[in-house]
Design a protein around this nucleic acid. Structure first.
Lengths: 194, 194
DNA sequence: AAGATGATTGACAGATCGGTAAACCCGGAA
DNA sequence: TTCCGGGTTTACCGATCTGTCAATCATCTT
């Protein structure tokens, strides 16, 4: 039971689940992909649900780390970082492997609200909302929680439409909308203003 | 092969697929729900994919008809109807049976872009976008296609978050955002203004 | 009443699902 | 060399998946 096999299992499962969906990906497929027997998988994870939850934990860390870092690289003010959300999204949408949001897909396949998979997906969105709220507060906006919720809605909508239409354009539309909303909060986010 | 059984099958399948997901709902379940043998189903539909496509056609008609009618009932100007999108959404979110957007879920489970199910889901969103564009044009906005795309993003984002958090609140946030965006296009949609 | 016709069925095929029991392999201790 | 013990595998379980076939049932014609 080598512990590095465990993370390899999680990473391979993540790719398979992301590309093929959760129900459509069998444990045999995961085993074959990693070059391990199915029994070995069940030494690391009690059930498929357990594996999925581990996958979602990894995805949550990876994605939020990537997004937050990218936002900081693209702008150095809180206000600028809120706009940079959508520039980062556009980079993501343009990637070959982009297939939508793993958490939206997870909650679409496991929709009962008591389901741990659903709960964990919702938690991911809550963490994003918290981060946006902190930035909105730091930016001195009028209604930080409100604008944060609106920016999150724009983000999720852009992801859904980019995935369905196989087009990165929704990122720019969401960005333009975000700029307008931030303007309406009494700020001039695009520079050259005030 | 009574033709009314066919529509009964579609309607029951719609409910099952909507509540349980597509892969998670077997044809046996559909047969049992309608009180028909599985063989009879396959007299009407060549495959499960065929049945799903028929379900999506029905859903597209039902949903767009409902939304468009509700928008007209809630407002009598094109601009007001664009805002009313989100009032209608809030009513939908508040319904007991609300479980998110069937097309988002379909495209989440069948994500390959050649998949007919994916294509038909994308078509549904395109039809919504067209309608929004027509209304935006009628309202005399500056950039009808652009604002239509933004309003669609807000709609999809609100649906996703409402489904994941089991809370209708995203409808109001999306509505507030839409009002701001329409203001930015040189209009005062909420009345009492110019 | 007998036959024809089309709708409907139970039973099943072949594959795959999540999950498990028992054998196996292999390095180290005695 | 013999034994031991944990990581790994093969082979399998019962259930369920999509889809089909041959038989049955119901109805109408003659």
């Amino acid at each position: 039971m080598r512990p590095n096999k465990r993370s390899e299992l999680i990473r391979n499962s993540l790719n398979l689940f992301y590309r093929n969906g959760f129900h459509a990906t069998g444990m045999d497929m995961v085993a074959a992909e990693t070059g391990v027997s199915k029994t070995s998988i069940y030494k690391h994870f009690r059930s498929k649900e357990d594996l999925i939850l581990a996958v979602l934990r990894l995805r949550d860390e990876d994605f939020r780390n990537w997004l937050y870092r990218r936002m900081e690289e693209l702008a150095d003010t809180p206000l600028g970082q809120l706009i940079a959300i959508y520039d980062a999204l556009e980079e993501w949408f343009a990637r070959r492997e982009f297939q939508g949001c793993m958490f939206i897909k997870a909650s679409a396949e496991f929709q009962k609200k008591e389901d741990p998979i659903n709960a964990q997906s919702a938690e991911h969105k809550r963490l994003l909302l918290d981060h946006f709220t902190v930035l909105a507060t730091a930016a001195g906006l009028e209604d930080p929680p409100g604008i944060a919720r609106q920016l999150l809605i724009l983000k999720e909508g852009a992801i859904v439409l980019a995935a369905m239409t196989h087009d990165k354009a929704p990122a720019r539309d969401a960005r333009a909308a975000a700029v307008e909303l931030l303007k309406a909060q009494g700020k001039q986010p695009v520079g050259r203003g005030t």
